[in-house]
Design a protein around this nucleic acid. Sequence first.
DNA 1: TATAAAACAGACAGGTCTGTATATTTGTCA
DNA 2: TGACAAATATACAGACCTGTCTGTTTTATA
Lengths: 198, 198
Amino acid sequence: MKSRRDDLVETALKLFYIHGFNATGIDRILAESGVAKMTLYKHFRSKDELILAALQLRDERFRNWLMAEMEKSSTDPEERLLSMFPALETWFLGKAFKGLGFSGCAFINAAGEFGDQAHPAHRLAAEHKRRIVDYLSELCRDAGLPDPEDLAEQLALLKEGAIATAHVRNMPEAARTAEKMARILIEAAKARGGQPKA
Amino acid sequence: MKSRRDDLVETALKLFYIHGFNATGIDRILAESGVAKMTLYKHFRSKDELILAALQLRDERFRNWLMAEMEKSSTDPEERLLSMFPALETWFLGKAFKGLGFSGCAFINAAGEFGDQAHPAHRLAAEHKRRIVDYLSELCRDAGLPDPEDLAEQLALLKEGAIATAHVRNMPEAARTAEKMARILIEAAKARGGQPKA
DNA sequence: TATAAAACAGACAGGTCTGTATATTTGTCA
DNA sequence: TGACAAATATACAGACCTGTCTGTTTTATA
């Protein structure tokens, strides 16, 4: 039951992601979605609201995709953590989200265009990243790893570094570099921290 | 001996960095630099050329700043490598470049707005990142660390992750997280690789 | 089938954008 | 001082942008 609103947000997300927010005009979104202008302004007060809706959709889609990839890889929490990186590589290679290739992280891009920390899009980007850290924390705790919040921050930082590297330098293999690093850091955390739970 | 061209590029860099490339109109650059429009188009064919000139200036400035920070920290190559992270933190706190606070990495931002890998601005961003990896490689080699290119890629990835995290989530302390990780990874490289040169 | 809500097409207002044209002023150097 | 180059102010063309208005057609529901 796809509503016109859904068509609009879907098309907006695609164009914003590929071409950027400021560079994408409303008219193009309307043309590609086949929706009339008045319908847009019946559902959204402004282009900014459409941007926020698109980012909210992206947050949901991306986290669901990532979590599904990680959960299908294994039942072991530590292996799940490490499976984040092969998942990222399939994304970097453009195989993760149909229709959108890989144009970096939509939220890093949004923070770049909307530099002001107080801008709603920037805030939404920060929330997205925090939610992912929370998920990683949970997995670290499930894995019985010491200092799970700290380790989750480390793994999240590796993820951000891999994304930026893969995008700016066109280096999808950054995912494998990050994975190697993650293995070392996890082992170091184990060695340093208390004994694993088993 | 500051030319009008320099005024222009300087002002352009500042405004592009703070407000973004597409969001910054030429008129504003002209107003804030006090230069006439015809003068701009005498020095540059188009806004795109001005963008490239601004990014080239940024590349030079940023790398000179980073290398100077790292070289003044110590004469020991390994300590120099690690000093990248405190330097990054001063940048994240807005204390590095007068007039520009911290709005993330200008090149990550450029790659975000100009998503096409073939776009000159995107290519310039990739070159900037590669130059930094080259510098880190050199330091790794000087430090007698095993597999210096590989380790340089790891440290560069930590740098990108710290930048993205600091900007999107407003977390300057990401620099310290990255530094801790760097220490662990360097030790692991030493342990794994051949014996250090001394 | 009757009615109401939703989406449609298309014009338009008002602003901003890049880039150009013209004519005037400033600055430099001989 | 005279001549030449550089920079200036100002106006403007043409495109594009967001958002609004009007009136028609489609769609869903009762």
